[in-house]
Design a protein around this nucleic acid. Structure first.
Lengths: 246, 246
DNA sequence: CGAACACTTCGGCCGGGACCGAAGGATGCC
DNA sequence: GGCATCCTTCGGTCCCGGCCGAAGTGTTCG
């Protein structure tokens, strides 16, 4: 950090400042907080401090930095201060980073039971991720309910009908200004799943129908035996969609 | 970093170790080295030291860390030691990070001429990125030369024919085991462009045909006036592909 | 075979920043 | 109003790790 002459050495002058954001994610405490927020819930400063294993004083400093960089959005309510990830892009970055960490064998623990549950199903900001999410996506795509276009993913007419039959009304979700439907790469499965507003609607649907419950303290989404069976019945695993050079 | 009782506090026990990788990217020197490698070229330790603006001794330490984490692959040749990014996933992470940094307004300089050139066209590991790359992609997609399937992107029969007519033989590229064709999100354009082996083939084609040249010291790809015109003629900008709810 | 070169290792310096306890606002509850 | 709760700010400590110069290893070239 010493002796670097600002404008003279090297040619690292242009382009986005990668290291600024990366340094923020590089502290284990801050990383733990952000990962906790990946559940999509807004958490209070105190809860985040607990997640990171630091005192409130330390956490407060961390959160101020994250907020200033725009990674996290604070929100005051009463004497609590809630924090949430500032947009799906931040969640996407965290997932990308997680994917690379897994790929390079950098995990914080040997695969345990909780880890297995995370791989099966978890919340990724505001939609489902993990094996269930990938199955859901490929089941819809395999039956022609989704049309993948270059720029986005769209629900086809049959898809709209099929979802409506399940009691899933897409109109209110479509109304929001955020991208209706996006693909998101799953770090544990290395295959795409649905994000965007449609992903959020489906998460909502799965929880509303009582098939699964969110864990209280982390990102897991736990299916009951009956719920899992119902899920498999409604979204049967598709035969792998062969890309078949057309 | 002090006083954190290893297994007792918090619940940051499972999942991939995000902060380890992020911390590596969080140092400006290492970030500069990795960004330089994003050009796809392998560079020597000395060149990377110069890029980062540090002495060889310091750079050597950084590179050892990057290599140990699997972000960079070293390769000895004579009395030089070359380094390259260890796989497209690393390049993808760097681009994702750059995208977020731009989105949050964290750039290292006000938009200058070099920056403008970078946005127009640059190398992203082994394929084209920037406005030209996005145009190339949407031109192909808009004419039905690409079929975007859920898992991958495929070249259609008409597409194969059209590329063959340009003198672009895809067979050797297809033979490699890496993903033939992938979409990659462009940080400056926020739209997808082609990665994977097909992207590499097209970069090769653009350079071979003499339309553009790579800058010597950075990621820029500079088109000559005639080259740019030829490019526009062969890959005319498509009418925006309307996602039209099908 | 010795000199030049590229890089790494070693030792030591130094600064940023993570950490905590205590004190200082806010806010809500009784 | 009084008190507990939640959070932030302040002051101070301490360590991690980036940085360099110098010395050491291996390679090439004359």
């Amino acid at each position: 950090m010493r002796g670097r002459v600002p404008g003279q050495t090297g040619r690292m002058r242009d382009g986005p400042d990668i290291s600024r954001i990366a340094a923020l994610l590089g502290d284990p405490g801050r990383a733990a907080m952000l990962t906790a927020l990946l559940s999509g819930k807004a958490l209070t400063a105190g809860e985040l401090a607990h997640q990171a294993g630091v005192t409130p004083a330390t956490a407060s400093g961390h959160l101020a930095q994250l907020a200033e960089a725009g990674l996290v959005r604070p929100w005051k309510q009463g004497r609590h201060r809630y924090f949430a990830l500032d947009g799906p892009e931040v969640a996407g970055l965290l997932e990308t980073l997680a994917g690379l960490a897994v790929g390079k064998g950098l995990t914080r623990t040997r695969t345990g039971p909780r880890d297995a549950a995370l791989r099966e199903c978890r919340v990724c900001y505001d939609h489902l991720a993990g094996a269930r999410a990938v199955q859901l996506y490929s089941s819809l795509a395999g039956r022609g309910f989704l049309a993948v276009t270059p720029e986005t993913v769209a629900v086809t007419a049959p898809g709209e009908a099929a979802l409506a039959e399940l009691g899933l009304d897409l109109a209110p979700w479509r109304a929001r200004k955020r991208a209706f439907c996006r693909l998101c790469l799953d770090w544990s499965e290395r295959r795409p799943h649905l994000g965007g507003a449609l992903g959020a609607a489906l998460l909502d649907f799965v929880l509303e129908s009582g098939w699964a419950q969110r864990a209280r303290n982390d990102r897991r989404v736990v299916f009951s035996p009956e719920g899992g069976a119902a899920f498999d019945a409604v979204f049967p695993a598709a035969e792998s969609v062969t890309p078949a050079s057309i």
